[in-house]
């Protein structure tokens, strides 16, 4: 087989870049996933494997879904919202998460909503649950034209640290919550290689964690089980006298789910292969004192146990 010329520079670039450092879970007890949509935590560019790794390690985990996902699915806005929320709850249960918050902003219309209002909701939830780690969309990712992704990422870019300041929304303290700055962040973007989002760590996943990610992903049947896509692929192959044996006997809907799972398996193995392990996901990780570039080395060297 001829190696396509176009792939040579790409392969060379990946080899030149070398594997990313493997990141262990940071210390803590509570983890929060804050994403625009019901499925963003489990998609191929998503973070389902890392979520499973956190819950396996005993982290208490919460999922915040900012939009109402009314556009995802073929059942009309109201029904889509209900179905997607139900599927989202099933997905987080598979991953071992404790609860879901649906902020229910109008799907794909989040650009004009007040940033501060969304930010205030996130600040409150951060103060309520005091997460040690937040997994969220990268506010600095490029080429993501989804308005909900941009809005949530930007709101989180403020919320995770403003939540730690007493002079931000002091009314929250009437409810007994206290300021809390999120010390660790894992950022993910839709386009996760290239200038738009260059991951700085890889997280090794177990076989079980990848399988749970795949199951959680395929739970979102309302949006991912696209019979038309599976039918089109099978028809195209049939024209060339080919078929996919793994899809033999399946309905178009079941075939679509199966194909999505293949993709999930492929991407987990690919990220693993690039980083010297069997399965992996890649992230831009922000450490607890990265916001203090002039002090983080000093703190690392001089901090002692009490």
């Amino acid at each position: 087989m001829r190696f396509p010329a176009l792939l040579i520079p790409l392969a060379a670039a990946i080899l030149a870049a070398g594997p990313l450092p493997l990141k262990d879970l940071p210390p803590g007890k509570v983890m929060m996933v804050i994403q625009p949509h019901h499925d963003d935590h489990t998609t191929d560019y998503g973070m389902g494997g890392l979520i499973a790794k956190f819950t396996d390690a005993g982290y208490e985990s919460y999922f915040v879904r900012a939009s109402n996902d009314e556009k995802d699915g073929a059942h009309g806005y109201g029904h889509n919202d209900l179905i997607n929320e139900r599927e989202s709850k099933a997905a987080i249960a598979i991953l071992g998460m404790r609860d879901l918050y649906s902020l229910s902003w109008r799907n794909d219309y989040m650009d004009p909503i007040p940033l501060q209002e969304l930010r205030a909701q996130l600040i409150f939830l951060i103060r309520k649950h005091r997460p040690d780690v937040v997994l969220t969309h990268d506010p600095w990712g490029h080429y993501d034209r989804n308005p909900d992704h941009r809005k949530v990422a930007r709101a989180m870019g403020d919320a995770y640290w403003l939540a730690g300041l007493e002079n931000v929304h002091p009314e929250h303290f009437e409810l007994g919550v206290r300021p809390h700055r999120v010390p660790y962040l894992f950022y993910k973007a839709r386009v996760d290689y290239g200038k738009g989002h260059e991951p700085n760590v890889a997280v090794e996943l177990s076989e079980s964690q990848v399988r749970r990610k795949m199951r959680a992903y395929s739970t979102h049947r309302n949006v991912y089980a696209s019979p038309a896509m599976a039918r089109a692929v099978r028809e195209q192959l049939a024209k060339e006298g080919l078929e996919l044996p793994g899809l033999r006997g399946l309905t178009d809907e079941a075939a679509a789910v199966e194909m999505e799972e293949w993709h999930m398996d492929w991407i987990s193995r690919k990220r693993g292969r690039e980083n010297g392990v069997r399965y992996a996901e890649v992230y831009y990780f922000v450490d607890e004192f990265d916001h203090l570039p002039g002090l983080k080395e000093y703190l690392r060297q001089h901090t002692v146990k009490k």
Binding site: P27, G164, R181, L292, L295, H302, T303, V304, K306
Partner: peptide
Amino acid sequence: SLAMRIRQRLEETGRRLPL
């Protein structure tokens, strides 16, 4: 504020900075 926030973070996680 910076100094107090660093100290608070370290205290909450069982650490201290002698400075």
